[in-house]
Structures are given as C-alpha cells and as structure tokens.
Design a protein around this nucleic acid. Structure first.
Lengths: 266, 266
DNA sequence: CGGAACTTTGACACATATCAAAGTGTGTGG
DNA sequence: CCACACACTTTGATATGTGTCAAAGTTCCG
C-alpha cells in the first residue's frame, strides 16, 4: 500500500504566488534583513544577522526567496536540481528518501528553525523529497550565493560547517535507533525528541499535537502503523503518556527515559 | 556479550612514533606536497593538489600529520576533543557510535581514500570511535587550518562541502538499509558496496578478503553474527558467491542485485 | 448523515534473535 | 613440527518481537 504516492499531495511547487522576482536586488536583501531580525533562525541561517555593515554588503549576493506551502505540498522532490537550502521559518516538514523500487524511508522531520536540503550539495540534485506536514513557510537560500558569502565571512562559514556536521551526528543517532532499538524504545525516543524540539521553539514540551499520522511515525521509526498504535496504547496503560488521536500529553518523562534503557546491556 | 570492550585493542594512540612535531612549518608542507602527489586522495583531500603556486602558499597554514596505526589501534575515541579530520591513506577503519548504556552501532567503514571524523565538527568532540581493522596509515588534517585555507580557496571549499554532503547522503542509505531491508538484502548491498569500493581503489572487485569478522559485519548491518553467517551460506548455495572464511568471490553480481529487489513492493 | 481517512485491537505468521554445540583455522610455545 | 588454545565460523533448535491480515471503532468534513 505504501507503494502508491499519496494522492492528495498537490503538485504546487516553491515560489509562493505573492513572492515575485528571483533576481538579486538590494531592495530584496533589505527587506530580508528586517524579516530575518525577527526570525528565530538567527543562528542557523545567520547571513542576515549579527553581521557588520560591510559584511552585510557582501551578503547582497544572497538571494532569499520566501515561500509558503500548504499542508501536503512538496518543497522539493528527489531528483530535482539542487539550487537552494531551505530554512524552515514556520511549520513542519518530513523528508523521505526512496530507492529504485517502491520502497521509501523517512529520513527526518524538520521543524521551525531547522534547515532542509543539505543532502543535495554533492550530487547537485536532491536525494530526498520534502513535504510540508502543515501549512509552512520557508526561506530559500541560494546555495551558490551562500557559498560565496561564506567565502568572505569566516563566522558564517564555520556556522555552516557546524550545521552540516550536526546533520551527520543526527543521522548517526537515527542509525542507532533503527539498528539497535526495540519498538518501545524507538517511540519513547521519538516522543522525547519531539518534546525537546517543541520546548526549544517555545511550545509546551509535555502537551502537543502530532503533525503526522501513525503511518508517518511508523515510516520514520521503521515500524508498521499497527505497532506504533499498540505501543502508544501500551505507554498509556503504563501511565507514561496520555494519547487521544494526534494529541499527546507526556505524564512521566522519567518513565519514558527508563523505557529507553530497558533493552540495553547488549 | 558485546558489552565488554574488546580487550585486544591497544591503547596506543595517534601520532606514530616516527612522526614528530605538530607545529606548522614550510618544510613540513613541502614534504607533504610530494606525499600528496602520489596520494590517491587527490580529489578528497585536495589541498595539496591541483592548486596554483599562490594557492599553495596559502596552504602552508595546513598542518599534515601522517601516522601509522596497527590493526586494532584506535584513531580517536568518542568524546575526544576534535581537532582534525583524517584522510585514510591506506588501510581500513570502522567507526562505532555508542549510547549511554552499553549499546553500540557501527556507523561506517572507511577505506583508502575516504575521510573520517566529520561528525566531530559541530560538537567539537568526536561522537564516535574509529578503529583500524588492518594496519593503516592516515593523514591528519587540522580542521582549523583546513577552514582557513578553504576560506581562501573556493575550489577547496566546494570540495569540502561536497565531501560532507556525500557523507549525509551515504548515511541516508544506511538508514534505508537498516530500516527497510531484510537480512539478505542488507548483506547483498554490503557485498556490492564493498566490491564497488575495492574497484574504485584498484583492487579486484569480485574477489577480496573481508577485513572484518562476522560480528563486525553484523554490527554494521544490525544483524547477529549467526544471521550473517547463515546468509553467507545461503548465497553460496544459490551460487551467488563463494565464501571461505574471510575470502569472498562474487560469482553472480546480477544475482546479488536481484536479491536487493526481492523484498520491494511495499 | 455518509463517507473517507485514520486508529485501535485481535489472531496469526514469519524473520531474525537467542541459546547451544560442534567445526575450522591460525598462531604460539614446547 | 606438533599440539594446544583461542578466536572465529557454521549449523541446529527454539523463542520472540514485529509484521501481516482482518475487522471494528473513531474522528473529521463535506
């Protein structure tokens, strides 16, 4: 069943209708500067922020192209030509990789403040598909421009390297999760991780709405939707959480952390 | 059982005895240049190669520190302060990540021509442990230096970004492998991948000695050593390969590729 | 209200882990 | 050069976690 590509996905792409030109212009950058100052990507997407005026001058090589996507819309597809990284200004994305045959693996979720698309740099094509899980807004950063600017501004360059490295480390964790953990542990990690990210973005960490279906969670954790559901029920019985459809309340954080330790000693 | 840290691992670290000073010196770089010209890392570890003389002048900020490791020696440990990337000049390494409890996951193998340690950039500590699986030689590249040089030489900078991106893509494949593939498929992929890498480094692609034990293969693929062994035997029965201890001959490459397709359609 | 999409729960199947024991090198010391 | 030990591999029997299939339940939305 997972073979079929979700049909509800519209084909609308990038470039929100209200966002016009793609050509670099001082005007554009200026407006970007104001936008960025209120953006909580400051650290990640640093180019507009924390720079001196002269550095700022250099930064006009960078074109920012904001766009809005609605739930289900595709930011980029596997195979698309790579031109930009995307900073998630607001919203929630999933990214999935697929191999020749029909199989797919969710490679990650990106929420507000995170950056998508780093997989495309070397192959110059995206190797996965990024889909908005809720109405979202991204800031497209032309990679060629970013590289040029990074060339001139060491702090930005370092920032960018750290960002890529963080992605590598994050993926190593996922490998550990997929390779060495039981269903209970995977789901506990998933919930705690999600909670941490919500907290980091100013949302209540112990009470949130999942933006994804059981099937999507299962795809990320490499479990079937049934196993995800059963494990949720089990956690609820153990009074670790309270679930009601997409709504989750974490009742016993320490308990969830203990779940992760259960299978250890191997 | 896997809890215990392999005892045979010696504690000898980095810096082979013959390699002395760590201070940058023109002399050092000069000798490096000759070394690199005969090094098959040209593309990856580009700094010494394909550069103009003036770029070369800049490159003297880079300190290379070659060192030899014997089978079982540790290049760096998880938690070690991160200072350098390591280009594998010759040999074979595995790198393992571990979580609090005793569990570990092999995150990859690196052979001649590949680069280790990119996970350490953001945390400024290594997040995994790299161990030589055979007598090996690496070229340590001070990261601070690399960053400085990359700042000045765009082509090097791009090269470096591609390298990190490639690592991200590679890990996505491993996620797919761990998350979505059966034991047969994992082992087939492993063999074909290994074969491709041997070919790329000028070794016969259909006949090679595994540098790792069944347990290590299992750790990488997240299978038990028994399952690895059984699957080898099965492949042999199907006349796909011939195995004898560590020696492997690939008899039917197309057949192995077909194995990877078996489980698809999901 | 009806239907679609999603979730929950149950019964059963199956791949892989686990436990156990025998087999095969390979290097070391007598 | 043998033989003993050790580390690794193979194979078998059994256990178990998760997938698969099926059906009923819930929520959402037109």
């Amino acid at each position: 069943m997972a073979t079929s590509i979700p049909i509800r996905i519209t084909t609308a792409r990038r470039h929100a209708p209200d966002d016009s030109a793609a050509a670099p212009s001082p005007e554009k950058v200026a407006s970007c500067a104001t936008i960025c100052s209120s953006c909580n990507l400051r650290e990640l997407c640093a180019p507009c922020c924390g720079l001196t005026r002269s550095e700022m001058d250099i930064a006009d090589r960078l074109v920012f192209n904001r766009s809005r996507l609605r739930r289900g819309e595709i930011l980029y597809r596997s195979g698309d030509r790579f031109t930009s990284l995307y900073a998630v200004r607001d919203g929630f994305f999933k990214s999935t990789a697929l191999i020749e045959n029909g199989r797919e693996q969710l490679t990650g979720y990106a929420m507000t403040g995170e950056v998508l698309g780093m997989d495309g740099i070397a192959p110059e094509r995206h190797t996965c598909t990024a889909i908005a899980l809720e109405d979202s807004e991204v800031c497209a950063i032309l990679f060629a421009g970013l590289q040029e600017v990074a060339q001139a501004i060491p702090s930005l360059q370092r920032q960018f390297h750290r960002m890529m490295s963080r992605e590598i480390v994050r993926e190593q964790w996922v490998m550990l999760l997929l390779g060495r953990m039981s269903a209970e542990e995977r789901l506990a990690m998933f919930l705690l991780n999600l909670s941490r990210r919500f907290l980091a973005h100013g949302h209540p960490p112990s009470e949130f709405n999942l933006r994804m279906t059981r099937e999507e969670i299962g795809s990320y954790l490499s479990l079937t939707l049934e196993t995800v559901s059963r494990t949720f029920s089990q956690f609820q019985q153990e009074d670790l959480i309270r679930v009601q459809q997409r709504f989750v309340r974490i009742l016993d954080r320490a308990g969830l952390e203990r779940v992760i330790g259960r299978g250890e000693q191997r």
